[in-house]
Every structure is written in structure tokens, then in C-alpha cells.
Amino acid sequence: MERFLEQRLAPGATIFILDTTLTWPVSVLGERQRFQFGALGGMNPREYIGGSERLAQHLAEQGSRVRRWEAPATDDTSPEAEWGYDDALSRDIEAVAARCGYTVRRITLEEPEHLSPLVADFYRWRYQRHGLPTDQLLVETYNQWEPYWALRLGVVPFWLQFTARPSYQWLERYLQQTAPYRRIDVNLFSNGLRSVGQVTAEEWRGIAHRHATGSGGTIGVNEAAFPEDVGSTLRYQPALAALPQRYPLPPPASVDELDEFLADTRNVAPADGVRIATLQTAAGHSERQDPA
């Protein structure tokens, strides 16, 4: 990692650490060996380990003989295996930054999608500056994110972890707080099976239709087949490409623009506990905190 940073970054570059503080109970198997039962999604760790009424109902509906899983005993807590950040990396990042004269900025948040309201408002802010529309929202889920098409179509992206209830509620909260969008499209990742806490395609279509002042619904997904619509993984890009509008790509965003946006919208953009801090390194960079 250090060699990559030294060889690939421009002089005076800024390194962003995305510090997702999410943790999960684990079983310690040995030195640097952890086993995590379950993961971030529609259920919390307590349900994975101790069970719940809705888990029992779900297992019954799927024809299972059991009503809860026999989870292994846990004896520690670690960064969540897929989304968490291990702070052991920070020391090496700060060392190479000090050696090469880079700036290190740390974005701290509890879950990955908690950054999405701020990112969406940053896109909206930049679009307005470049004369692009600011009234179209593209909700993207899990790994079906398409930054190129968001920019090419002039739509504001809103990234969600999954198609589960917590993500649905996070989107609802954002749409209740922000200025209305004329059009809202929701692209759904199909995980191939029905799971606890999963939100139906009808509900996703409904939230888009309810909050859009013009049109709203799903895009690139067969609602009747969801969440077993595995073809949606191949269908969502052509669905975006089929939309008629095209705009020139705006220039890449700069760190100075980010700082200007944070200063302009400090009391406007939904903060949701996101913190952006400039870290002090041996090279003498001053420490600064920007609550986003």
C-alpha cells in the first residue's frame, strides 16, 4: 500500500480515510483470525446470535425446520468484516503522508450509507454551479453504482448499502429533509433470495412515486421477479443508457471545492453525524475538524 501511495499520488495530494466505525461481535480463532456470524443488512447482530420473532417467522415461511440459528459463541468485537475500517492501517497511511508531504483527511461515520445525504447534496451543489439540473435523483443499491452515468445524465446519486429496511428508512429520512426532486429513479440489487428485513419492489417504487414531484419508480429491475431478478445486474446499465438526456461531464471535483461546499452548507446539508477531519502528521499538517 505504501509503495502504491508513493508512486501513484501527485505531489501534495490528499489521502481520504473512510473510517466506518461499524463493529460486529466475533469469535476469536487465533492470532489475526476472527469469525463473524452474519453481516450488515436487514438484521442486527443480536438477531443473528439470539434470534427473534420475525426471524422465526421467516424461517417458517421458507420451510425450515429450525426457528433460529445456532450461532457460535462470541468473545470479542471487531470492525465489521465487509464495511468496517481497521484503524491499524492509519499509522502506515500517516507515515507515508508525512514522508511524501501528503495531507490526510479522515471521514468518520457509523455506516457507509450515512455519507450519502452529504454526497448527494455535494453533487447538487456542483451541478448548480455548472448549469446542470438539480431535480433528478438516482437511488443505487449495493454494488450497482454507476458514477459515470450519474454525471452523464445529470442526475444526483444516492447510494444505499442494500435493499433492506434500514436503507429504505435512510432514504425516506433524506427525502423528507431535502428540497424535492422532480424525478426519482430507484435501481435495486437482486441478491437472489428472500431475506429478513428485505423491502419489496412495490415499496421502493412507492417511496419514489410518493416523494417525486413529477415521475418516480424503479429502473432496470423486473419488479415481479425481485429479489430473484438476477438479470438486473446486467440490465441496470442499459436502462440508464436508455434515458434520453445527456450532459457534458463536469470537471473533476477538487478538495478546495469540497471545503467550499462544507462552508456554504454547514447549516443546510443533512449532517447525520459525519465528521471530516484533517489529521496532523510528522510533516506538520495542522489538525482541523469539519463537522459535515
Rank of each mutant, 00 (worst) to 15 (best):
H209C: 12
E223H: 03
S27I: 00
E172G: 05
E111I: 13
F122W: 14
Q144V: 07
R288L: 11
Y127N: 11
H209E: 15
V28N: 00
R8L: 08
E82H: 11
I49Q: 13
E140K: 07
D86E: 12
V104T: 02
G84R: 10
V155K: 11
L234T: 09
D76M: 03
E53Q: 13
I219W: 08
R68I: 00
N222I: 01
F37C: 07
V186Q: 06
R106S: 05
T163P: 11
L40E: 15
E110D: 13
R99S: 09
A277D: 15
A56V: 04
G101V: 06
L59G: 09
L138P: 04
V119S: 09
S78N: 09
P270Y: 04
V104W: 06
D229W: 09
E111H: 12
S190I: 04
T21K: 10
G192H: 08
E260R: 14
V119R: 10
R91H: 13
W83N: 11
L243M: 14
V196Q: 12
A201R: 04
V230M: 09
Q161S: 08
V274A: 07
S167Y: 02
V155E: 11
E53D: 13
A241P: 00
A98P: 04
V196K: 06
L59A: 03
G217H: 07
D76P: 02
N143F: 14
D92C: 04
H130Q: 10
E202S: 12
P79R: 04
A292Y: 12
E260D: 14
L258C: 11
L171C: 03
L132R: 13
D290F: 14
Y174D: 01
G206R: 08
L171N: 03
A164D: 15
W69E: 01
L188I: 02
S215Y: 10
I276V: 15
R165K: 13
